[in-house]
């Protein structure tokens, strides 16, 4: 049986792991390689490293850091932040990244998803979508770390991303992110029903029960969180033990 995945997300700024509440008010929490290796040992299924400042500061991603991560960590990892050209992705692939996530750059240039998928394969391309709820089923896609709303809508953009060859969708609800009251399960379930590629849920994890809900009610394939892991509020092994007891397939 395919297991549901638990994914700690490490937001990186200046080579350090950070986690901001609603992407503001940033606090440093440590060395990404050390923290990533710790999570891998604890049983994390995958890791995501996001260079959260890259897109608006136009900074190139962190190839050297990615290489160090690949040398030390024996589980798959995704890197994202400011990837806007094939050459960026190529450098990250050669450094040892398993997947890249593209967000704002794909919204500005949707062809980027198609180009990436054709060059590197769909399995390498994660379409990250940050969205805010307008009303009911209507969610606006935002860019630049949630700062700028766009004309795109969550469900139609997710469909286009899949059609262009994205291998996974990483959906972050900007309304739920940092609030710790649970994931956007209703929107996630709709995404999961509509799409034929795995959905990674992000934004809102604050308790173990939230993961149970996101896998059952939200029908997500993977649950991503940051601060609850970084501050050891919910250690990965404890979370996995809980989910196994709840009857969810977990490694």
């Amino acid at each position: 049986m395919l297991a549901k995945r638990i994914i700690p997300c490490l937001d990186i700024r200046n080579g350090q792991t950070v986690k901001g509440v609603k992407f503001l008010d940033i606090k440093e929490v440590g060395d990404p390689v050390e923290l990533g290796a710790l999570y891998a040992e604890q049983g994390a299924d995958e890791l995501v490293f996001l260079d959260i400042t890259a897109s608006h500061e136009k900074r190139k991603t962190f190839v050297d850091l990615v290489k160090r991560i690949a040398q030390h960590i024996n589980i798959p990892f995704t890197v994202g932040g400011g990837i806007s050209e094939l050459s960026d992705a190529d450098a990250l692939l050669n450094a040892g990244a398993d997947k890249i996530s593209i967000n704002s750059s794909a919204v500005k240039n949707p062809q980027l998803i198609s180009d990436m998928a054709r060059h590197f394969g769909s399995q390498f391309v994660v379409a990250a979508i940050d969205a805010k709820q307008l009303q009911g089923d209507e969610w606006t896609v935002t860019v630049n770390g949630g700062r700028i709303p766009t004309d795109k809508r969550l469900f139609s953009w997710a469909k286009e991303a899949e059609e262009r060859g994205a291998g996974e969708i990483l959906f972050t609800s900007m309304d739920h992110d940092g609030v710790k009251q649970g994931f956007a399960n209703e929107a996630l379930a709709k995404l999961s029903d509509e799409r034929g590629i795995p959905i990674i849920a992000s934004g809102g994890a604050g308790a173990k029960e939230h993961f149970k809900d996101v896998f059952t009610i939200g029908k997500a394939d993977a649950g991503l969180a940051a601060s609850i892991f970084h501050f050891n509020e919910i250690p990965v092994p404890e979370l996995k033990d809980y989910l196994i007891k709840e009857g969810i397939t977990i490694r």
């Binding site: 395919l2 999961s192 034929g196 795995p198 394939d221």
Partner: peptide, 19 residues
């Protein structure tokens, strides 16, 4: 080929940890 008769819709690629 996805098994559409399965209520738990099956996604392609097969991605993740399996036993």
């Amino acid at each position: 080929i996805p098994d559409t008769s399965n209520p738990e819709k099956v996604k392609i690629p097969h991605m993740g940890w399996n036993n």
